[in-house]
């Protein structure tokens, strides 16, 4: 279910780092909690994000949630497809529903995130 190569935050964001570029999205757990996503507010390319800074807003029919940067860095790309097809966040949260790519500032921050086995355990704890 949850890709091995990703790192996960307690707020249910994932980040997948290749080179110094990290792709960021929300987890399957998060999209299920939100319900049908109807709109995603994206940041502008070039925005500099601090660790845990809110960089966007996800709206479902009856809820709004902030999305937080799991690592700090500069936004290099946003998933424009979400403008027309916000449902990608529900249908493919770990792949086509990615939200932004950022140039990761420091690898050290990644250490604070959870690897997949730890995140799955974390989810089990939440479901109790």
């Amino acid at each position: 279910m949850y890709p091995d190569s990703f790192s996960y935050s307690k707020d249910h964001e994932w980040v997948h780092v290749e080179g110094d570029i990290g792709t960021i999205g929300i987890t399957d757990f998060a999209q299920k909690q939100l319900g049908d996503v109807v709109y995603v507010e994206l940041p502008e390319v070039g925005t500099k994000l601090e660790y845990h800074q809110s960089f966007g807003v996800i709206e479902s029919v009856k809820a709004v949630s902030d999305v937080y940067a799991p690592v700090s860095g500069e936004v290099t790309a946003v998933n424009e497809e979400l403008n027309d097809a916000p449902e990608l966040l529900n249908e493919s949260p770990h792949d086509k529903g990615w939200i932004i790519k950022i140039k990761v500032k420091s690898g050290a921050e990644l250490e604070k995130l959870m690897p997949v086995n730890e995140y799955e355990k974390y989810l089990e704890g939440l479901e109790d």
């Binding site: 109807v38 709109y39 709206e59 029919v61 009856k62 709004v64």
Partner: peptide
């Protein structure tokens, strides 16, 4: 309605 007060509250 996510624009509105009963969901977004102060925002």
């Amino acid at each position: 309605s996510t624009r509105e007060q009963h969901i977004r509250r102060e925002r």
